[in-house]
């Protein structure tokens, strides 16, 4: 099955021989140096501009600093910033955490829809290309455009499309912070719940997320060995069984990627919320971090960094889970 002209899905099918990777020690000194440079330059840029600032942010989260005065005016305050965000700013932190949690669940549902669409499009029906382009379309739009479309064209209370189609009283999709459902947690003196405007925002997010996942999964499906699927259907599996028992497990690596992208997108969510001017009820961790660290009011670098570290720790948890799943077996 190996293609001769290009290496694409064909070669991909031919399971690569494992464990035959070149040993580093067998290389000449010159080759070693070349390899070292090849990894060294990108690694230096990456570490210097991503990991070092991340470490500094971690340090800043234990400091009090106004972002503007020289850094040496920063003073250590121990865990004070953390204490503040968990007790005094609890009415911002916990709704944000809850919204992020809702987003994780929601985006997983969206990912499932994306996978379904990918699976349907993989059947090579008429017009597959067109559908594929349409579903993917929102992904290529910039956030400013997406924000404009939803806030002004769709959600606007007085003239938005959704309110024109809606038969009842107009709904303030942007500003209505009343809760669709709510519950109380033991240590909080206010209820948590899903507010109307955040629910509306979920629709806008789904619009973007589904196409993204659809394309990723489609790429996976295209490289899936069709003979396995045929074998399954000869064995009497119906379509759902084939998908569930053969295709889905066979695509485990890509499932992991989709799961990680979904979780990280949910945790990092910021831009669409900001584009809708982040009314009360739609706060997520991303907006709390950004407002404290970059806004004009961003004179509280320590607190912002503490918000940032909470977000970072949540992300890193998933990153570690992902890394274990993705690298352990194949590089053993």
């Amino acid at each position: 099955m190996i293609g001769t002209s290009t290496v694409s899905t064909d070669i991909a099918q031919a399971a690569p021989p494992r464990g035959r990777r070149r040993r580093f020690s067998q290389l000449s000194r010159r080759d070693k140096t070349v390899l070292f440079v090849m990894v060294g330059i990108p690694a230096f840029i990456h570490i210097a501009l991503v990991w070092v600032p991340a470490l500094l942010t971690a340090i800043l989260s234990f400091m009090k600093w106004d972002n503007v005065r020289p850094v040496d005016t920063a003073e250590a305050v121990g865990f004070r910033n953390y204490w503040e965000i968990f007790t005094i700013f609890d009415n911002q932190l916990f709704p944000a955490l809850f919204n992020n949690l809702v987003l994780i669940v929601w985006l997983f549902l969206c990912s499932a829809v994306g996978i379904l669409l990918a699976y349907l499009l993989d059947k090579n029906l008429k017009g597959t290309r067109v559908y594929q382009s349409i579903y993917y379309f929102p992904v290529v739009l910039s956030v400013a455009v997406v924000g404009f479309i939803w806030k002004s064209v769709m959600f606007n209370r007085d003239a938005g499309l959704l309110n024109i189609l809606w038969p009842g009283d107009p709904i303030d999709f942007v500003g209505d912070q009343s809760k669709l459902f709510e519950f109380n947690l033991p240590l909080l003196d206010f209820p948590l719940g899903l507010s109307t405007n955040f629910a509306a925002l979920l629709v806008a997010m789904a619009w973007r997320h589904i196409g993204y996942i659809m394309v990723l999964y489609l790429a996976g499906l295209k490289s899936f060995d069709p003979s396995l699927r045929e074998a399954a259907s000869i064995d009497g599996c119906n379509e759902w069984q084939t998908f569930r028992r053969v295709v889905f497990p066979g695509l485990k690596p890509i499932n992991v990627v989709v799961a990680v992208i979904t979780v990280i997108e949910a945790l990092r969510a910021y831009d669409i919320v900001a584009a809708l001017s982040e009314p009360r009820g739609t706060e997520v961790m991303g907006t709390l971090v950004t407002n404290s660290l970059t806004g004009e009011g961003g004179g509280y670098a320590g607190r912002g960094s503490a918000f940032g570290m909470v977000l970072f720790l949540l992300c890193i948890g998933f990153i570690i889970w992902y890394v274990i799943n993705n690298f352990r077996e194949r590089d053993a």
Binding site: R268, M285, T294, F327
Partner: peptide
């Protein structure tokens, strides 16, 4: 493996978190 992990994990980091130190750098 370490480098692959380092690069991949770095990409997943929320960007706003690193902004202030990066600005100074």
């Amino acid at each position: 493996v370490f480098f692959l992990v380092l690069f991949t994990a770095g990409n997943l980091m929320p960007q706003q978190v690193i902004f202030q130190p990066l600005f100074r750098i």
